[in-house]
Design a protein around this nucleic acid. Structure first.
Lengths: 120, 120
DNA sequence: CATACATTTAACGAGTACGTTAAGTGAGGA
DNA sequence: TCCTCACTTAACGTACTCGTTAAATGTATG
């Protein structure tokens, strides 16, 4: 088994409430480490490490702008996570007549065919 | 922050490939611990612990049938996880004309209004 | 009752996660 | 150049994860 496959890294990153909150923040706007630290009762080094985890999971990208490092949301891995979970939709979505809508979206146009690991 | 909120427990449970594979197994059929152990190169106690993690995350329920304990998939928490991720769909779903389909499903009929923690 | 079978719990070890404070790096500004 | 600001890395403690093997536990069954 791989040390850390992509999907595991993503779910693992999402397992922390602070990191989820950081992603929520970044959904609104890019932000520097200082800005991201402000809302939380933890130190800047702690936030810096959270950002590193998110970066390793490819959930954010970072660019240097002079003295500041700006973090930007990268949602592609969330798509993979969503795709994985989607397989179980039928187990909670009681109205099966919605399946067509679901399939329409999953196989929907506007998205190129991507290779998916079959894993689980 | 909470010791372990529900969503964190779910994402944390999903972060392990073995546990994801167990869920995939249970999607096909209920299974005993022995049956669930067979496909994996780990000991039964290890699987037993994975099942405990999944149970704490409410992703499975278990019933005793004589000598055996059967595990059953409980997908409700996956719905919560999916709902959380869905908020970011617009960041990877470039074709915005699919938004209506998305909204149709998210707010779709057949699902009672549920309370959602606003958290992140 | 004794034995076997299914599963869990205990005890241990290595590795990782998450927080802290203190020290290091790198880019501007006086 | 020296100082400051933004951020990262180092060092540390505590706690949790994931695996192991060995010892319970609990439920048939001979």
């Amino acid at each position: 088994m791989d040390g850390t496959d992509q999907l595991s890294a993503v779910f693992s990153a999402l397992a922390d409430p602070t990191r989820r909150a950081i992603l929520a923040e970044l959904a609104d706007h890019e932000a520097t480490v200082t800005e991201l630290t402000a809302p939380f009762p933890i130190s800047m080094p702690a936030v810096s490490r959270h950002l590193k985890v998110l970066e390793r999971a490819a959930l954010i990208s970072r660019t240097r702008s002079g003295k500041w490092r700006s973090s930007r949301l990268e949602a592609a891995p969330l798509r993979d996570a969503a795709d994985w979970i989607e397989r179980y939709r039928r187990f909670w979505d009681s109205s099966l007549d919605r399946l067509d809508v679901h399939l329409a979206r999953v196989q929907g146009a506007g998205r190129a065919t991507r290779a998916h690991d079959q894993e689980a």
